[in-house]
């Protein structure tokens, strides 16, 4: 199929960017979206132009590096996939595809479609862990049975890949889904409960400082999340935060 790509090009953080049109030809439906981008880039390189910079790494939907806003949606029109798992069969011959970077104050653009998501790391550094040393002298793994339901819920929250699609899709550029996934995972497990209060307050404060917006419960994040992280986690974080505020 032949397509027209409208891609955000921006040389560096300081320069103004713009949307540039590129035609691509003979795209196979079995190609992934990023492979389609590879085709474009090889063409650009061989023509002597600068290829489009974009983040990508594992190309199997787990590292969370790829991050394109495709036709008005984070990771494009398909559900439950990252950009690298989006396949061209979701598009038709003659389509025009808009490709933009994540847009958020907390995710400044580095170049073209690449953004700086280190704000997520800083939120995690504030409290996204259980304070246990790696001495190897902890108690036996089976000493604390955990109800399967809790363990499963914790696991589901823990599958967050930190790609930032939630922030990109949220009209407020809020990071609540991301932060709540970690808060939930650890709040659900006995190991994490010990420092749950401190954790939620520190992580939320850092989230606010980083310039993410507020949650207005539109639910866009849950829909666009490639891992299907549930809004239930945001509610749980709200509870945890309330608990921490009242009881502390």
């Amino acid at each position: 199929m032949n397509l027209t790509l409208k891609i955000w090009r921006q040389k560096n953080p300081n320069e103004k960017g713009k949307i540039v049109s590129y035609p691509v030809k003979d795209i196979d439906g079995d190609m992934s979206f990023l492979e389609m981008m590879d085709v474009l880039n090889v063409e650009l390189i061989e023509k002597g132009e600068n290829p489009v910079a974009f983040d990508h790494d594992c190309r199997e939907g787990i590292c969370g590096m790829c991050s394109m806003y495709i036709n008005g949606e984070a990771h494009g029109p398909d559900r439950g996939v990252t950009t690298c798992q989006l396949h061209m069969r979701k598009f038709k011959d003659g389509d025009t595809i808009y490709i933009e970077p994540w847009r958020a104050k907390a995710f400044p653009i580095i170049k073209d479609l690449m953004v700086d998501r280190s704000a997520f790391d800083r939120v995690m550094n504030a409290g996204g862990f259980v304070s246990v040393n790696t001495s190897g002298n902890t108690i036996d793994a089976n000493a604390t049975p955990i109800p399967k339901e809790d363990a499963d819920k914790a696991f589901e929250a823990a599958t967050c890949i930190g790609c930032g699609a939630c922030v990109a899709s949220c009209k407020n550029a809020s990071a609540m889904l991301f932060v709540s996934a970690k808060v939930s995972q650890l709040a659900l497990l006995p190991q994490g409960k010990v420092e749950a209060k401190e954790r939620v307050i520190k992580m939320v404060n850092t989230m606010d400082e980083e310039g993410f917006g507020n949650c207005t419960n539109t639910g866009a994040c849950e829909v666009e999340c490639p891992k299907g992280i549930s809004l239930e986690n945001i509610a749980r974080m709200n509870r945890e935060y309330l608990k921490a505020m009242i009881l502390k």
């Binding site: 008005g72 933009e100 009209k171 829909v223």
Partner: peptide, 15 residues
């Protein structure tokens, strides 16, 4: 929190 918006946004798809 989002000083620059999207050129093309399909918010109806998710909310």
């Amino acid at each position: 929190s989002r000083p620059k918006g999207y050129a093309y946004n399909n918010a109806a798809a998710n909310s």
